[in-house]
Amino acid sequence: MAVLNVNGKAVEYTAEPDTPLLWVLREQLGLTGTKYGCGIAQCGSCTVHIDGAPVRSCSIPVNAVGTQKVVTIEAIADNGVLNKIQKAWVALDVPQCGYCQSGMVMAATALLAAKPNPTDADIDEAMTNICRCGTYQQVRAAIHAAAKA
């Protein structure tokens, strides 16, 4: 049994130390909001926050996380109320299939925490997540809307 700090709680898990954090979250802790898309840190569907920074959880072994604080899509609402990014996402009806959107919301949340008023260039740089439905235009609009909220 090993321990992780996930969503503000110490949680136990059983997995080989080189297991990617993604699969511990999904299969050991039941946090399936974090998605598997590529396994090679390309698509961003598995984005979580580690000590506040956006990290692709498919490519970090669980034993490298240590005592750092992991936050997943399930815990970014403010006490059960959608946060301003999630609200903007709903207001602009961003998702289509939605599979990439957990990662998009996590990346956008980290971006706004670092840069409360991001430019289009900031968005281009930070939002490297792949969306195959093509929600990029709505994603950009929602980030700007959340920044103003």
């Binding site: 299969e27 909001g33 998605k35 399930e74 959608l82 996402w89 961003v94 939605g98 959107q101 957990s102």
Partner: peptide, 27 residues
């Protein structure tokens, strides 16, 4: 009108085939 399936897609609650789980399930 807004879509009927948006909210769960921004909270991680939406269940896709990949997320399905059952007691005793193996992978």
């Amino acid at each position: 009108l807004p879509r009927l399936d948006t909210v769960d897609k921004v909270t991680g609650k939406q269940i896709y085939g990949m997320d399905h789980t059952m007691p005793g399930m193996l992978v």
